[in-house]
């Protein structure tokens, strides 16, 4: 597989943020995914949303949060915003 092949493959997936840096010439030994932060941010955000989901479960049916739970929710939302920021930077810059 050539450098050109890999570049084309990267473009073919249609995700603007996925860019490959090719290391090596005649023999391709390593591919570094530049958008790894975006991938991590997607999972990070979904994991934080999961924690928020669990908070909803624990406080069902009325979802009245006590002060500790509000603090937890606040921290989770702040973390989520950070992950969204990473995604903006990685995908839209």
């Amino acid at each position: 597989m050539s450098q050109k092949d890999l570049t084309v493959q990267g473009e073919c997936v249609g995700v603007q943020s996925i860019r490959y840096l090719i290391v090596g010439f005649s023999h391709i030994s390593m591919v570094i995914l530049v958008s790894k932060p975006a991938i991590d941010a997607v999972f990070g955000a979904m994991f934080i949303l999961t924690d928020i989901r669990v908070l909803l479960r624990k406080t069902a049916p009325h979802h009245v949060l006590d002060p500790a739970q509000k603090g937890e929710a606040e921290a989770l939302l702040a973390g989520l915003e950070k992950q969204v920021e990473v995604l903006r930077r990685e995908l839209l810059a």
């Binding site: 979904m46 994991f47 999961t50 924690d51 989901r53 669990v54 909803l56 479960r57 069902a60 049916p61």
Partner: peptide
């Protein structure tokens, strides 16, 4: 169901996922 209500179904209780499993 689990987010909007308290579910006391006899067979579903112990199988509710942990956050770790959801992730």
């Amino acid at each position: 169901v689990e987010e909007s209500s308290i579910n006391i179904d006899p067979i579903q209780a112990g199988g509710r996922l942990t956050p770790e499993a959801m992730k």
